[in-house]
Nucleic acid binder design. Structure first.
Length: 261
DNA sequence: AGGTGGACCCGGACGC
DNA sequence: TGCGTCCGGGTCCACC
């Protein structure tokens, strides 16, 4: 669809797609990604798309009739459409770099597999965290981690999801675990759970669900020690961990140099 | 400023 | 079979 001109836009829910009419008359340039956001370069504007949890973006020659069709951009030949099964997805037009309507994008941390993701700044950020998992989900210290990969990375690093003030060693372990979990998920073409919410552009399921070690495995044995995986609620999210491999210790015992033992 | 809890939504799973 | 209820996913926002 790159190179095509946007002729018209139609949004089912104009309130949540503010500014979309600014896209009309622009030509779609490069398509980039930051974290979970897709950025279409329109020259002096960016078209920002977030698929939420169940959204799908498609380029189709004819306008589909689909009950979950939420936004349609009419292009020179064909349509760019956002299907948004549960209405958490977004399409917004902004000036490049001005992401006021998208505060999470405005404060997005580095890509986990990029050179900008560095252990030093990461360690500094997680040393101050009240609870590590909500910080990972905030997108501020690293971009793109959702509930599945946050749980998996914390398991690999042997850190309890509610742990605060990570020490240097924990920070290094978590840094590596995040990169491994993301790289593994990409190599397995994504995670498609039982509900098949995620399918790739060819409509094929991913394979990473077969490699998850804690997510949605509550009650099953830990792959390392055999202890039953626990599920708790943390920051409003279902959170899976091994209570034996990921013990929660008082922060004071972990933050090096803060005790007089 | 940072943390937290609720709102948003609806398909699917589950219980009766 | 059908109906009601609950859950969960990623932000965003109001509040602390």
């Amino acid at each position: 669809m790159v190179g095509r001109k946007i002729r018209a836009v139609a949004a089912q829910d104009p309130q949540r797609c503010r500014g979309l009419s600014q896209a009309v008359g622009h030509t779609i340039g490069a398509l980039n990604r930051r974290g979970k956001y897709l950025l279409f370069d329109l020259g002096d504007r960016h078209l920002v798309v977030h698929l939420g949890m169940t959204g799908q973006l498609a380029f189709q020659p004819v306008l589909p009739t689909h009950r979950h069709l939420r936004v349609a951009l009419e292009l020179d030949r064909g349509y760019l459409v956002l299907f948004d099964q549960r209405r958490f997805g977004k399409m917004v037009v902004t000036a490049p770099g001005e992401y006021g309507p998208l505060p999470t994008l405005a404060r997005l941390g580095p890509e986990p597999l990029s050179p900008e993701f560095r252990p030093g700044p990461f360690a500094q950020a997680v040393a101050k965290a009240a609870k590590i998992k909500p910080l990972l989900l905030s997108q501020r210290v690293v971009a793109g981690l959702g509930n599945i990969y946050a749980d998996e990375a914390l398991f690999r690093a042997k850190i309890h999801p509610a742990q605060g003030r990570l020490n240097q060693r924990q920070a290094e372990q978590l840094f590596e675990a995040i990169r491994q979990v993301v790289a593994q998920a990409i190599s397995h073409r994504g995670t498609t759970l039982r509900d098949r919410k995620y399918l790739d552009p060819e409509r094929q399921p991913g394979e990473n669900q077969h490699f998850l070690q804690v997510f949605q495995r509550a009650g099953e044995p830990c792959v390392v020690c055999g202890t039953a995986i626990q599920k708790i609620r943390l920051g409003g999210r279902g959170t899976h961990f091994c209570p034996s491999c990921q013990p929660l210790r008082p922060t004071a015992h972990l933050a090096r140099g803060t005790t007089r033992e």
